[in-house]
Deep mutational scan, measured.
Amino acid sequence: AELMTLTIVKGAQGFGFTIADSPTGQRVKQILDIQGCPGLCEGDLIVEINQQNVQNLSHTEVVDILKDCPIGSETSLIIHRG
């Protein structure tokens, strides 16, 4: 298992991935745009978004944080894999 830092840019259609609740937090459910989120894999656990720890937040709260990220700006994700 490892922590990885990824930088992704939000496009007009969003980030290009969906998230779902899991017992340990929000996991990447589906990658819709592989080019839009390079390095991200289905099943990755989202630990931080732009230096904000999201592991204890609800699904709705994490979705809102992602929605609030401006289109075209870089967003830093720390994910836990494995």
Rank of each mutant, 00 (worst) to 15 (best):
G14D: 15
I71M: 12
V62A: 08
Q52V: 10
S73K: 10
L77C: 11
G16H: 10
V9G: 08
G11T: 12
K29Y: 00
I78G: 08
E74M: 14
I71L: 06
L3E: 14
S73P: 10
Q55T: 12
Q55W: 05
E2N: 13
D64S: 13
C69V: 11
Q26D: 04
T5Q: 07
K67A: 08
A1G: 06
V47E: 13
L45S: 15
I8E: 01
T5I: 04
I31T: 07
D68Q: 15
Q26R: 10
H80S: 13
T5C: 05
N53I: 08
Q51M: 10
Q26E: 13
T18M: 09
L3G: 11
N50G: 09
F15P: 09
G39A: 09
V9E: 07
Q26F: 03
D64V: 09
I34W: 06
T75E: 08
L45A: 07
S22T: 08
F17A: 00
D21K: 10
T24P: 12
I79A: 03
Q30E: 03
I31L: 13
L77R: 00
I78C: 05
N50F: 00
I8T: 14
D68S: 06
I46L: 15
G14C: 06
F15T: 07
Q52A: 10
K29T: 14
G11E: 05
I79D: 01
G43S: 06
G25Y: 04
D33H: 07
C37T: 09
T7Y: 05
I31S: 02
V28F: 01
S76Y: 15
D33F: 07
C37H: 13
Q55M: 12
E2R: 07
K67H: 03
T24K: 13
G43N: 01
E61D: 12
Q51G: 09
L57W: 05
S22I: 02
I71T: 10
D44E: 00
T75I: 06
S76T: 09
A12L: 09
E42W: 04
E42C: 05
T7I: 12
K29S: 14
H59K: 05
L77A: 05
S76H: 01
E2S: 09
Q13W: 06
V9N: 03
A20H: 15
L57P: 01
S22V: 08
L3R: 12
T7V: 05
D33Q: 13
V54N: 00
V63T: 04
E61W: 01
T60M: 13
G43T: 05
E74T: 01
Q51V: 07
E2W: 03
F15I: 09
C69L: 08
H80P: 01
L32E: 11
G72L: 12
V9Y: 10
T7C: 11
C69Y: 04
L3P: 03
S73C: 15
D33K: 03
G16R: 09
C69Q: 05
C69R: 08
G43Q: 15
Q13C: 09
Q13Y: 07
D33Y: 14
Q51E: 12
I8R: 01
V54Q: 00
Q13I: 03
G16A: 04
Q51R: 09
R27S: 04
H59N: 12
G36V: 12
G16M: 12
G36R: 08
P23H: 02
G16F: 06
R81G: 13
V9K: 05
F15M: 14
P38A: 07
V9H: 03
P23Y: 04
E61Y: 01
P38K: 12
V28D: 01
A12S: 10
A1V: 15
N53M: 10
P23W: 11
K29R: 10
T18D: 12
L66P: 00
N56P: 15
V47A: 14
I65F: 07
I71D: 06
L66F: 14
F17L: 05
L40G: 00
A20D: 15
K67C: 06
R27G: 06
I78H: 04
I78P: 00
F17I: 09
L66M: 10
Q51W: 07
H80A: 09
C69W: 02
K10F: 01
D64Y: 15
H59Y: 06
N50H: 13
S73Y: 04
D64F: 06
P38Q: 05
A20L: 04
V63G: 08
V54S: 02
E61T: 02
L6H: 13
T24A: 12
L32N: 05
T60A: 15
T7N: 14
L32V: 14
H59Q: 12
S76E: 10
H80G: 12
N53L: 08
V54G: 01
I8Y: 12
I19C: 02
H59R: 12
S58L: 11
A12W: 09
